[in-house]
Design a protein around this nucleic acid. Structure first.
Ligand code: SF4
Ligand code: SF4
Lengths: 169, 169
DNA sequence: GGCATAAGGCACTGATTTGGTGCTATTTCA
DNA sequence: TGAAATAGCACCAAATCAGTGCCTTATGCC
């Protein structure tokens, strides 16, 4: 069956393994708040490669999401409240602030960062795409670790805001 | 200045060049609705690699987003109304339906597709992440070509729905 | 002190994806 | 017939990603 359209999966929304491992570790640490959890403990608990997880935790430490303690009985612990750590923070710490198009690489400060694409003046999709990216990014910033720890959540998906001004649903 | 956190850009929300080129071509075709536009014309207009654009247009044709006409004076044209073509459609045609985590590769039909990750039973972040992905994907499905063609759009970004049930902003 | 156990640093490999090109065949219009 | 267009497909180079090796440094405990 050639050309099975719809069965392929894009990775454009795919979290990297690093981010997944980071999220798993952070969620695990929410329960153990106040204590230092070692990378070994987490890696054995979730069957995650130990060395890779250590690398991820290190980056989370650089991003000030966790604090580390060296030596025996050392490990990592959340450096702030679980509600103050969002998926966006994790992605930003492990992959950098995301962009939808190459013409703008928004930092946390929101600099324009003119862009490396040379068809900007002619490009017709630039501005609306940025709006879409902003919206998505905002959702990641609005999803905190506590939202990830609440498993059942029998919530109904609310109506999405429409990004265009003329589609009235 | 080592470790310039916040300046790196993640590509997790980055459209591929193929998708970008596809969107540009489609938006261009919105204006020329009814006529067949050649890949050469678009590539010269926007300084996009001709051969690559042709490849993209071909995939869009496979995805039934555009119709093609061969031979001299041939080209491509939208196969349906611009409002009926969404960013999600384009992404799906050019990259496949997206997934946030590797444990589920949702097709358009929405099959479960059990998953290739072996830490699903233990994984604490699975369900909420899927909710996030759904929400993002929904936004892409809600953004049509006409939304991309409306340049000024002095619209205020509406409040986002909160994905967690306990964060009351 | 000495040792086990922790994180920190960094370079490195292998597999995959992505952007892009070459070449040929086929279709259409003049 | 020939130019111009799509269709198909293989191929390449660069970038990214998952994962590992190896060493250094720090801490707790005997
Ligand atoms: S200017 Fe247009 S083509 Fe260039 S990176 Fe931005 S959105 Fe993409
Ligand atoms: S089960 Fe968890 S770790 Fe595995 S792919 Fe799904 S979200 Fe990622």
């Amino acid at each position: 069956m050639p050309y099975a359209l719809g069965t392929l999966t894009s990775d454009m929304l795919q979290l990297t393994k690093r981010t997944e491992y980071g999220l798993i570790a952070l969620v695990h640490m929410v329960d153990q708040a106040g204590t230092f959890v070692s990378a070994r403990e987490i890696s054995e608990h979730y069957a995650v490669p130990r060395r890779l997880l250590a690398e991820v935790l290190k980056d989370l430490c650089r991003g000030s999401l966790v604090s580390s303690q060296r030596g025996a009985a050392g490990g990592y612990t959340l450096s702030r409240d679980a509600e103050a750590i969002t998926v966006g923070d994790v992605v930003e710490a492990l992959e950098g602030a995301p962009t939808l198009a190459g013409c703008e690489s928004t930092t946390t400060a929101g600099e324009p960062t003119s862009g490396d694409c040379d068809l900007e003046p002619q490009c017709p999709i630039r501005s609306p795409l940025h709006r879409l990216r902003e919206s998505i990014w905002r959702q990641m910033q609005a999803t905190s670790l506590v939202a990830l720890t609440a498993p059942p959540t029998p919530m109904v998906q609310p109506r999405l805001p429409d990004l265009s001004e003329n589609a009235a649903s």
